[in-house]
Computed example of a mutant assay.
Amino acid sequence: MASKLSRNDESWPGRRIDFVRFAENLARRRAETGITDLPRNSGKNRTASKRALLKAIKDIGGRW
Rank of each mutant, 00 (worst) to 15 (best):
R16Q: 12
D59A: 12
N45T: 13
D59E: 15
L26V: 13
N45K: 13
N45V: 06
G14M: 08
N8H: 14
W12T: 09
R51G: 01
P13Q: 11
A31C: 07
S3D: 13
L26R: 15
L54Y: 02
A52G: 06
S3K: 14
R16C: 05
G43W: 02
I17W: 12
G43P: 00
S6C: 06
A48W: 05
A27G: 09
R21M: 07
K4P: 02
D37M: 12
V20L: 11
R21A: 13
D9L: 03
K58I: 00
L5V: 12
R21K: 15
I60P: 00
I57N: 02
A2T: 08
R28W: 08
R51F: 00
R7Y: 08
G43L: 08
W12I: 09
P39A: 03
E32C: 04
G61I: 10
R15A: 04
N25L: 14
N45G: 05
S11R: 02
N8P: 01
R29S: 07
K4S: 07
L26E: 10
S3V: 02
K50A: 02
N41R: 15
P13I: 05
R21V: 13
S6G: 04
S11D: 11
D18F: 01
G62V: 07
G14E: 10
P39M: 00
G62Q: 01
S49A: 14
P13R: 06
K50P: 00
F22T: 10
R46N: 10
M1Q: 07
A31W: 11
G62H: 03
R46Q: 11
W12L: 05
E24G: 04
K55F: 01
N8D: 14
I17P: 00
A56D: 13
R7W: 08
D59S: 12
G43A: 07
K55C: 00
G43N: 09
E24S: 05
L26G: 06
S49V: 14
K4N: 10
A48L: 06
R30G: 09
P39K: 00
M1V: 12
P39R: 01
S3E: 10
R51V: 05
T33D: 06
